[in-house]
């Protein structure tokens, strides 16, 4: 059967991992290539790298990082940050990304999705959707969630569940769902919206934002939790709190189907 994926995510600024990286037994360099290589060797199911640089020079540095990382790993690589047009997608794929995460441009230029799907296939498009809870209006039972863009600085007025359904129709291959309310809190994923979207949308959903413990990964993936197909996390791995094999062992012991940890590169 298909296993749930565990995806460490590296936020890259000016060519360096931000938030800091402390692997057990490795120098703390903040070097994304070293970090990605370590996660690959630990048996991460996939790697995600997001460029949070806002400058043109930063983009070039990021492309170079993608090229170097892609040259070091034998795992799928999802890459995003500042993808606005077809040429951005092409540059990232040519640099070695397997999938490209598109965020704000989904809202500002939704025609990009069918264009990319026709040229490169739906499987290489990951819709990065950032959501936050908004206050319920009189008469609304539950407070709805809205889609935000530009790193959460701009409201779109789009209702999150309907928007994700629309993205699936447009032809994206996966949804990377990040809760702005939970991101960085280490209190766990927003299980409510993760579950709603996982249940309603016919493409895989990657839960993101808020992981502080192994239990949070389990909750996000469980049938009685977020129902996500994959769990993305950053700091619990970067700070060396847990290794990928430890996380997989925990998930396996709690009935989440995962690929057994791969402990060496002997083949």
């Amino acid at each position: 059967m298909l296993k749930r994926r565990l995806i460490p995510c590296l936020d890259i600024k000016n060519g360096r991992v931000v938030k800091g990286v402390h692997f057990v037994g490795l120098r703390d360099t903040g070097d994304p290539v070293e970090a990605a290589r370590a996660y690959d060797l630990q048996g991460a199911d996939e790697l995600c790298m997001l460029d949070i640089t806002a400058t043109v020079e930063g983009r070039q540095v990021f492309l170079d990082v993608v090229r170097k990382v892609a040259g070091q790993v034998f795992a799928p690589l999802t890459v995003g940050g500042g993808v606005r047009r077809m040429s951005d997608v092409r540059n990232l794929l040519m640099a070695g990304a397997d999938k490209v995460a598109i965020n704000s441009a989904l809202v500002t230029n939704p025609h990009l999705v069918p264009q990319v799907a026709e040229r490169y296939g739906s499987q290489c498009i990951v819709a990065a959707v950032d959501v936050r809870r908004v206050p319920a209006l009189p008469g609304e039972e539950k407070p709805p969630y809205e889609v935000v863009i530009h790193g959460g600085t701009r409201s779109t007025g789009l209702e999150a569940i309907g928007w994700c359904e629309r993205l699936a129709e447009l032809g994206v291959g996966e949804i990377l769902l990040t809760s702005m309310d939970c991101d960085g809190t280490r209190k766990g994923y927003d299980l409510e919206i993760t579950r709603e979207i996982s249940r309603r949308v016919s493409i895989p959903v990657i839960a993101s934002g808020g992981v502080g413990s192994l239990e949070h990964l389990r909750e996000g993936l469980a049938d009685d939790g977020g129902m996500a197909d994959a769990a993305l996390a950053a700091s619990i791995f970067h700070f060396g709190l847990y290794t990928i094999p430890q996380a997989k062992q925990f998930l396996g012991e709690h009935n989440i189907p995962v690929r057994p940890p791969e402990l060496n590169r002997g083949y």
Partner: peptide
């Protein structure tokens, strides 16, 4: 049966038979 939609594409690591080894898939 577990209440989840049957999602397409089939993305991620799945085991192959008879070996039981896992490989990465991404296809519709």
């Amino acid at each position: 049966p577990n209440g989840r939609p049957f999602k397409i594409p089939h993305v991620g690591w799945n085991d192959v038979q008879p070996s039981g080894d896992h490989y990465y898939f991404d296809h519709s």
